[in-house]
Design a protein around this nucleic acid. Structure first.
Lengths: 106, 106
DNA sequence: AGGATAGATCAAAATTGGTTGATGAATCAA
DNA sequence: TTGATTCATCAACCAATTTTGATCTATCCT
C-alpha cells in the first residue's frame, strides 16, 4: 500500500465511522441486520418520525452502509455487508500496524 | 447474548465510532499506530494548535482509544489495541447477523 | 527563587449536526 | 380522475462539537 493511498482510505473510513456514530442510525442498522425492511415498517417498529428516519436512511446510504430498492409504493432498505467488511479491514490494518516491532532501539 | 445487553454494547461501540469520526482524531490515531508519542512531538508533526490537539487527545482517551503516561514534563500517548479489537468484534457480530438464513419463508 | 517549557483547561465564537413540521412527487386503488 | 399512502425534501429551529486564544499548573533547569 502506498502512503498516498492512505488518506483516501482513511477519509472513507471516517465517513463510515461517522455514519455509525449516532444512536438512531445504530438502531436502524441493528434492525436491518435481521434483513431487508421497508421504510414504513421501520418507522413503526422504531417509533420514529418519518422525516427523521428518512434523513438518517439517506445519510447511511450515502455513506455506503445501506442500499435500497423500490417496489411499488414501498422502498426497501438493506445493509451492505461490504461496508461493514471495509471497516473491519481498516481496523485490522490499524491493529496490525500497532503490533509492529516498535521504533529502532534508543 | 440477551437482548437487553445489547443496547449497552452498542452504545459503547457508538462512542468508539464517534471518536473515530473526526479527521483530526484519525490523523492522531494513525500517527500513534507507529508507536507511543509525546504531545509536543505530535503537535509539531501534525501542525496542530496545542489546545486543539489536547482537546482531541482527551476525547480519544475518554473513549478508551488511548492511554497516556507522564514522564517528567512530557506526556506520552499510545493506542489501546483492545479498543480497536472491541470495534472489530462489534462489527464481526453485526456481519454475522447479516449472514443469517433470512426470515421464514414467505 | 526565577524563568522556561509541556500540557491541561476554560469561555467565547464558529461550525456542524439533528429535529420538526410542511410540502411535494410517485404509486396505487376505487 | 380523485383520494390515499409511501417516501423524499426543504427550511427553520435547536443542540452538540470544534476551534481559538488566554490562562493555569507542574516540571525542569540555572
Amino acid at each position: 500500500m502506498r502512503v498516498l493511498d492512505h488518506p483516501l482510505q482513511t477519509d472513507r473510513a471516517r465517513l463510515l465511522f461517522k455514519a455509525l456514530a449516532d444512536p438512531v442510525r445504530l438502531t436502524v442498522i441493528e434492525a436491518l441486520a435481521g434483513g431487508e425492511r421497508c421504510v414504513c415498517d421501520l418507522t413503526a417498529e422504531l417509533g420514529l418520525a418519518q422525516s427523521k428516519l428518512s434523513f438518517h436512511l439517506k445519510l447511511l446510504k450515502e455513506a455506503g452502509l445501506l442500499e435500497s430498492r423500490q417496489e411499488g409504493r414501498w422502498v426497501y432498505y438493506r445493509l451492505r455487508v461490504e461496508a461493514i467488511q471495509s471497516m473491519q479491514n481498516w481496523l485490522a490494518a490499524l491493529a496490525a500496524r500497532c503490533e509492529r516491532p516498535a521504533s529502532p532501539c534508543p
